[in-house]
Design a protein around this nucleic acid. Structure first.
Lengths: 133, 133
DNA sequence: ATAATAGTTGCTCTATAGTGCAACTATGCA
DNA sequence: TGCATAGTTGCACTATAGAGCAACTATTAT
């Protein structure tokens, strides 16, 4: 049950950003949940950036996030039912420069590293890791 | 045929504004075209404001506008087909504070003044008229 | 305990979006 | 021919959104 009502504009505002659309579209098409590090490797974007966008999607009621130890799994929210219609639209959008296709390809590769369906490795793309001095 | 490809984000950006959602929702639910002055009286917003929002919707590929004498009629674009799905979502959105319902009520009343299906009067809400000194 | 790492967030900066006012164009009517 | 009016747009102002950096928390493994 959702106590505070989310404004319709907020919903569309959440999708009005390329990075967030890539996240949503990936989760819609792959029909899977994903943790941040898997998204970092799939979208090739820094974790702090994705973390913030995930928060915006969560606040818009599109995503639910569950912590499991070190990892946080993000999945699409499917209620209320018009969200399913919305995801159908997202899935039907053109992929002019094959960005989504490339994201999905990396994601598919990446989740092959899961053990028992759970993520067991961190960020693999060296250039996206945050180094602790 | 659409020569320049509209980015998916642009589509959602266009809907990420209360005024523009009111316009789209009104046209979806009423299943009618409307001219600016009818929209001004229905949404109770100044014409310069709506005119700009209509332009944004047009540029996003959601609206087509045709001039007929003094009046410009705006109608929803239905191609490509995922736009229909998008409108279905818009129609299914909650109307918490009955804003859309009130807009529709005023619009229904307003288009009763048409003659032969065409708008024959201008802005009726005195407080929204732009006075020429 | 300590180090490594998954993830988050405060801060600053820059770009862009929305508003209102006022001036503008274009069309029809007296 | 000139006026009223449907509609558009340049300008200035303000608010907000997104990015990057760096510091932070929390959890696991050694």
């Amino acid at each position: 049950m959702q106590l505070i009502t989310i404004q319709p504009e907020t919903l569309f505002q959440a999708l009005a950003d390329e990075t967030r659309l890539r996240i949503i579209r990936l989760l819609v098409v792959a029909d899977k949940e994903a943790c941040l590090c898997e998204l970092v490797d799939s979208l090739q974007e820094p974790s702090y950036k994705l973390s913030r966008h995930l928060k915006i999607l969560r606040q818009a009621g599109l995503l639910s996030s569950q912590k499991e130890g070190r990892w946080v799994y993000h999945r699409l929210v499917t209620e209320p039912s018009y969200l399913e219609t919305l995801y159908a639209t997202v899935q039907a959008l053109p992929d002019g420069d094959q960005v989504y296709q490339a994201d999905l390809a990396r994601f598919t590769e990446r989740i092959r590293l899961r053990e028992g369906g759970r993520c067991r490795v961190g960020i693999l793309s060296d250039d996206l890791k945050v180094e602790n001095k």
